[in-house]
Amino acid sequence: MLLDLGLPDVDGLGLIGRIRALGPVPIVVLSSRGDEAAKVAALDSGADDYVTKPFGAEELMARLRAALRHRLQEQGAGRVFTSDDLSVDLVRRLVRRGTEDIKLSPKEYDILEQLAIHAGKVLTHKHLLREVWRDESVDPQYLRVYVRQLRQKIEADPATPRHVLTEPGVGYRLV
């Protein structure tokens, strides 16, 4: 489902909630730049991802593929996430860069696990706090500290991360 939030007379957010209630249809939202609050709200009410207008066909297709894949993943959970030299084994809780095992603290792993389960999808700060800390009101600054530590451990060059990407004003995405 591709949904334009800029529809003139439909409450896009309400629509997302209603579709989500019907079943696990992947939803990708179209939004405009500078409207980060709307993106976060859409993601929090159940959208899988968003694309900022204007966009190229390639980008849109990549996002749609990621959303579909993510839905499949959810159904058949317990897979291994791999990207370049990084692999995350969600069943055995093993993280590996190339051939090297990486030791992560429990919180670091929990964050990476969430990002891996929803690989390719943006996770809002709120989502991560809820799933990892079980408390949305925790200061997001903790999240940032752990993400930095995570990058130090899994990125080849932590100054220019390739896997854990920041989506300004929205959240993080694992690619």
């Binding site: 980060e36 609050a37 200061d139 997001p140 600054q141 940032r144 993400v147 930095r148 932590p158 100054a159 220019t160 991360p161 990407l165 920041t166 300004p168 004003g169």
Partner: peptide
Amino acid sequence: KREAVEVGDLVST
């Protein structure tokens, strides 16, 4: 909308 921002993250993003 202020939030805690890491300068390294800002530059790389």
